[in-house]
Nucleic acid binder design. Sequence first.
RNA 1: GCCCUCGUAGCUCAAUUGGUGGAGCAGGCGAUUUGUAAUCGCCAGGUUACCCGUUCAAAUCGGGUCGGGGGCUCCA
Length: 636
Amino acid sequence: MTDQIRISFPDGSSREFPRGITVAEVAAAIGPRLAKAAVAATVGEGRVDLGYRIEADAPVSMITLDSPEGVEIYRHSISHVMAQAVKRLFPEVKFAIGPAIENGFYYDFDLPVPLAPGDLPRIEAEMARIVKEALPFKRLEMKKEEALKFFREAGQKYKVELIEALPGEKVSLYQQGDFIDLCLGPHLPSTDRIKAFKLQSIAGAYWRGDSQREMLQRIYGVAFPTQAELDNYLHMLEEAAKRDHRKLGKELDLFSLMDEGPGFPFFHPKGMILRNTLEDFWREEHRKRGYQEVKTPIILNEKLWRQSGHWDHYKENMYFTRIDDEDYAVKPMNCPGGMLLYKREIHSYRDLPLRVAELGLVHRHELSGALHGLMRVRCFTQDDAHIFMLPSQIRSEIEGVIDLADHIYRVFGFEYHVELSTKPENAMGSDEIWEKATASLQEALEGKKMDYRVNEGDGAFYGPKIDFHLRDCLGRTWQCGTIQLDFLMPERFDLTYVGEDGEKHRPVMLHRTIFGSMERFIGILIEHYAGAFPTWLSPVQVKVISVGEAHLPYAREVQKLLDDHRVRVERDERNEKLGYKIREAQMARIPYMLVIGDKEVETASVAVRSRDRGDLGTMPAVDFLNKVTGEIAGKK
RNA sequence: GCCCUCGUAGCUCAAUUGGUGGAGCAGGCGAUUUGUAAUCGCCAGGUUACCCGUUCAAAUCGGGUCGGGGGCUCCA
């Protein structure tokens, strides 16, 4: 045993150091810049603090604030500082957990008094004090019994519960100043490395996410390595709030939610144009791909829902009613109705695949606290389809849906990612069937060379699924499209087709959506475009604005020309100044304004103002017509 | 559903310590006849979400109901 150890670095180099050297000293030996930027390191397999002593040969890579890992450690350390501040202000606090999250951190507290927003500045001020005190984070290791004793005596029941669930003999604790918390680490070397954070909100959160357990108080904070990054993020949030679909929906007169129908949106005339335009597009794309369209009833006999399995697996989310002394349910999904339609006639293998689409209005009882504008509602229209197919057609049908989804999302310029969800706890059917179905979905994804994440246990109760998650302006992702492979419903409903051999066989089915729900998709579009829809989607595409009374007849002619060619055009001939009418049209996010005055009347032209690019100059009315109809046809 | 928070005119917001609810925009009427983001004047508009209480007196304080917002849980 020598006193030297050999440390290797990510660039392939290696150097000898004295045994027991700290990570910080290694960083310093490499260079002062690294020493300053490092917050922790990976030694061998594990992440350790800068104060960690390296006792044996190992690969070492420094973790700096430039990396996601470094920022995570930074944010996590701030959550400890927040906990310490809360402890100073509320000595009776009990601590739950406090992880780093995207853009920041949170910590869950059990407090005898409710926190108010006014407490946040006080906690922030206390945190600033702790940062200034430059308290080192010290790692302590304890035997589990010892740690349990420590936290029991401190009355920290949540920590006791956490430790009891931890594997191994020892646990690690971190101390800064007089504050000690159970934590795996690593942490910043000292609180004065913290530069920019802001406490954001207080929220309720269940202990361990279990609605049967204690309701804790969670404080969310945002944090970045520099003040500039924090300011930038806060500014982004402000910009995002400006395009909130609830606000724009009201301003642009698209939809509303009334006290009389929480979660049941009303669509206004302009919202309906948007919606119908999307439906027209959707129908056309489906028609091209060999889909038929059906409509099934909203209320169906309860027996059907028992047969489908919804009664056992989905009752909590359903609405029920009674008709002529019989029990009925309002449909939460379209599939059982689709099953009945399949069964209305005998099918040959030659008919398959059968692609049956339905814009189906479904109702689901969502918890009142979960409702959110158009994004989370209690009734919505799914752009559903059920594909009945031979087992040999599974893969090509799935691929067809993936292509269709990609085609449709592309038109809107959406980025998306894909998730594969597997068998949930309350599932119907055997493991074998689930494995087979999941493997089929996987094969299709791999065949398409798509990256995907696996979401264990998140499938529908009747089958695994592929979900498409679109990314919105807040960086939130929304589940829109879904492809669910189902071997069970055909079984439950005894669906058959006659095979080549003249015998009855069981078809396989696919449930799928692209938009997901029309309502949610419209909400996402509003935020995505900040209300400034591309011309083809705009409820009003062109506003004809006449300067004076003398220009009215020609203005009407221009309007008629556009209207005859199916351009959605309105005319503003009010006795107002031009600037006033322009301003109003601009605020309504109308893509084009046509100013009609003396010059235009004389030359049969229009002065075109673009919502996005301002004054485009004068052009013959017919040229503008061609321009705008071209945009509409090209879905621009 | 649970925790916190909020609810004033169609919309966005005011209203000292509890002391007779105001403004801008939108709307109606009138004047103005207008060239690229707001012309002027007048008028009308509210059982302060709803119910119960405390008080001489409640938009304001307390309790409840309904609804909104931020989360948790759940999900298209």
